[in-house]
Each structure stands twice: as structure tokens, then as C-alpha cells.
């Protein structure tokens, strides 16, 4: 699985948004081909589309292909979602199927 980046807005400042909405910068670390990782990708993308449409940037990183980045982020396990912005930085582990916990944890309003 290749590292990918999804950016739904044209804004260059990841922390700001023209219409006042908070802009989310997320990174999902996965391991390729495992069902849990696949589910995590599907779940987080679905959540982003439903709650953060136009206000998020999602990187999906395969830890086996980019271990340096995983090390820099002090990653412990996969799948892990890291919310970089808005601050504070937060981590979530698992297949991202607990949408309620994620919505609260990501402070999505």
C-alpha cells in the first residue's frame, strides 16, 4: 500500500479555514493488506467525508514502507490515527470503527 495524501481544500495553511471551520490534518498508520488496517482506512475516510468534508487532509502511511516516519512519530502500534491539527495532537488506535469515540476524541463539532 502506497503512502497517500488526500486534501479536500485548496488552502495552503493547514490550520486555517476560510469559512471559519477548523481544518484537520490527520495521519493514519497502517500495515498493508491486513483486514483491520483496511477497515481502519475505510472507516476513517467515511468519517472524514461525513463530518469533515472539505476541511481535512488525510495521509495514509504504510509503516512497512515508511518506518522512518513511524519512528519520528513515536508510533507504537498500527493501525494508529494521529490528529496533528487542530492542536492538541492526539492518537487513536484500532480499526476506527468506534465512530462515537472518534468524533468526541477528534473534537468534531
Amino acid at each position: 500500500m502506497e503512502e497517500s495524501k488526500v486534501q479536500d481544500t485548496a488552502g495552503n495553511d493547514p490550520a486555517a479555514s476560510k469559512d471559519g471551520e477548523l481544518f484537520y490534518v490527520l495521519t493514519l498508520y497502517v500495515t498493508a493488506t491486513t483486514p483491520r488496517s483496511i477497515r481502519a482506512i475505510a472507516n476513517i475516510r467515511k468519517l472524514c467525508e461525513q463530518h469533515l468534508s472539505g476541511h481535512y487532509e488525510l495521509d495514509i502511511v504504510d509503516i512497512s514502507r515508511d518506518p522512518e516516519m513511524a519512528k519520528a512519530d513515536q508510533l507504537i502500534a498500527a493501525p494508529t490515527l494521529i490528529k496533528r491539527l487542530p492542536l492538541p495532537l492526539r492518537r487513536f488506535i484500532g480499526d476506527m470503527s468506534d465512530t462515537k469515540r472518534l468524533v468526541v476524541g477528534l473534537d468534531i463539532r
Partner: peptide, 12 residues
């Protein structure tokens, strides 16, 4: 058992 891999140092 909600994780697929552990990262310890440089090892996965």
C-alpha cells in the same frame, strides 16, 4: 487485539 503490528525501535 485491536492492532496488527507493534513498532519497537526500528523494528516492526
Amino acid at each position: 487485539g485491536e492492532v496488527d503490528a507493534l513498532v519497537i525501535g526500528d523494528q516492526i
